[in-house]
Each structure stands twice: as C-alpha cells, then as structure tokens.
Amino acid sequence: MKPGCTILIAGSRQGLGRALAEYYAERGHNVFGLSRRESDLVHPRYQHICADVTQEGSVQEAFAKINRATTSLEVLIFSAGLKATSYALLTPQSQAAHMLNTNLLGAFTVTCHAVRQMKRNRFGRLIYFSSIAVPLGGAGSVMYGASKAGLEQMAFAMSREFARDNITFNALGISIYPSAMVEELGEKALAETRAALVKPEMLQLDEVASAIDFFASEAARQITGQTLYFGGVR
C-alpha cells in the first residue's frame, strides 16, 4: 500500500477490523472506521463514524461525512460481519436474514457508496473478508458460509463492472484469527476447524495486513475478482 492512503474500514469497532484500524493509523495512513457503536480507538489519524451497514440511509449519512472530510478514498476493507454457528433447522429465518443483511447486503451498500469516489479518482482497492467456511462448508455455517460465498461472487462481478476504472475487488478467506468470533465457536468446533486446515495456526495481524497491502498496491492493478484463502484450503 502506498504511504498516506485513505482507508475506510467497515466493522472497525472490534476484532480484526479494530486491529487493522489501529495498525494502519499507526503506519501513517488516514483511517475512517464504521460501526454501529462508538469505538474506543483514539488516534490522530483515525476517525470513527457510527453507521449501521444494513440501513441505506445510515450508510448514506456516513458517506456524506466521509465525502466532506476527503475526496481521496482509496481503500475499503469490509470487515463488518456476523458469525453464528447454528444448524439449519435450528436457525430462525429472522437470524438468517439478519446475517445476509449484514454480511452481504451491507457490503453491497457500502461498496456502492465507496466506488463513487473511487470511480472519480480512477483508483480503488476493495477488500472483503470472506472465510474458510466457504471451501470447508462446515456443518453449522450454512448461512454464514452462504453470505461469504455471496461476498466472493459480488467481488468477482463488481470487478467486471469497474474494470476500466482501475478499481479492484478482492476477498481474503480468513482462517482463524483470535477474536470474539473464535471464542464463540467453542473448543470442539475450533478443534474440528483446525483439523480441516493445512495450516491450522492462529493468524497474526501482520499476516492479514501483508495480504491487504498486496491487494491494495498499485502493482496489483490486474489482480481482481480473486479470493485468497489462509490456512491452505481452497
């Protein structure tokens, strides 16, 4: 990633999104963060905006603030997402819909607003967090995996629509990153996931950041519509 980039992280209040917001602000980038609630991250190069990605009006208001603050949004990292381990027949329809609304529709809404600036500037790098749940297809991850597979397909199709604008859309298939999501999995499910991976170690922040830096670089202009999985699965 070039120095002094303007980055928007959706889902920056906790977990990987929060860690990345601090990581990039510390390295001299200008970071905007979105989440429903306030963030505890205080940094001169970090600006937090409360927004609900499932509500178009809320996202629109957030982008009105971003557009007033900058005209050079270069990178979007979509980290917002819900994870609920739940077997299909034990999943209420409302829970399934909420997951799709946040993980997939939320990404679509934020993307549509972000690419407007990027299109004008003829530069944009959009990076989505997918999951190894897509290739592994584990029991209990039906709607989570479906939402992430949808995200990958969205990135692929968007890459075609904006190919002429030097805007790329890629996804990272996160394996196991130490966060509340992993804690919620439980020991047994975590052990099963580890057993299915070629590389079962917990991901480190700099490992994820190095993949983001690659996708976000100018040199990766011809890498688009791709998903890069951690953990040795595909």
Binding site: Q60, H113, E161
Partner: peptide, 26 residues
C-alpha cells in the same frame, strides 16, 4: 455502463456546484 458513468458524473456535479451529497438511483 455509460449510464453508470453519467450517474456518477451528475452526482459529482451536484456535489461541486451545490455542496450536496445525493444518490440518484434509489
């Protein structure tokens, strides 16, 4: 795709001339 370019260009013109952030397609 030309319509997409046109929509973005009009939204930008509105922003420049009137200082308003609008979304044309809703």
């Amino acid at each position: 795709l030309t319509i997409v370019n046109l929509v973005v260009a009009i939204e930008e013109q509105i922003q420049k001339r009137m200082g308003k952030t609008v979304v044309l397609v809703d």
